[in-house]
Amino acid sequence: MANSTTLTTGKQNIWGGGKSPFSVSYGKLMMWIFLLSDAFTFSSLLTAYGFIRYSFPSSQPNEIVKPMSHVSDQFVEEMQHTGLFSTEHWPLPELVFNHFPFLHGIHLPLFFVSLMTFVLIFSSVTMVLAVEAGHRMAKKEVANYMVLTILGGAAFLGCQAWEWTQFITEGATLHGNPFGPTAFAALFFIVTGFHGFHVFSGVVLNVIIYINVLAGTYEKRGHYEMVEKVGLYWHFVDLVWVFVFTFFYLI
């Protein structure tokens, strides 16, 4: 592999042993490797989604319901009548995820999930700012940014809970739904649920880190690498959401 052909001069050889070739600590390397394998777990679920999605034809384009228009309480039944919701083809995400809290009765496709996306991206930013503050050993700043990150994560989980509730009240279960093929809702629950579980674990980890920051554990240790490692995990969760968002809501 690498660059160690014969007669390379010693000191510059990063693969020569005695130090990390990547110049990262073992803990960070482990986190990277774990994230790589976790990416494969998500990939397998998204692959399953792609497989099942592609085994069904796409729906007719929606030319009936316009964004911001009024929708009745029997919206799902109406859609079934028009043939846009049928077990024969995959439903259009805009017709399914069209609710927004407190704005009942208006067709607002994608608005809520966009909000969720922004929340998650924003919490990613505060996380990376916490990491940056950690490099400067600024304990107070790290703690503040951690609080913001935790709040962002919690807000995302809250949004997800609301969306799930909405979805379930409209009749979606693991073994059936009024929108389309059985697997539509089941896949939604599994993939967003698995992602939500990751967010939840991330929030728990962040809380632990926050407590440790306050207790001064990392200050004593001399570096805030633990914030960095958990930060990697948190960004990964954000990264996965980018793809969940793309595949479940846009395509």
């Binding site: 690498a2 050889n13 020569g16 042993g17 005695g18 990262v24 073992y26 390397l29």
Partner: peptide, 16 residues
Amino acid sequence: ITTVLNMRTKGMKMTR
């Protein structure tokens, strides 16, 4: 993986 990549002793190149 981490051990092999990060913790080789001095002189233990990948090609050794």
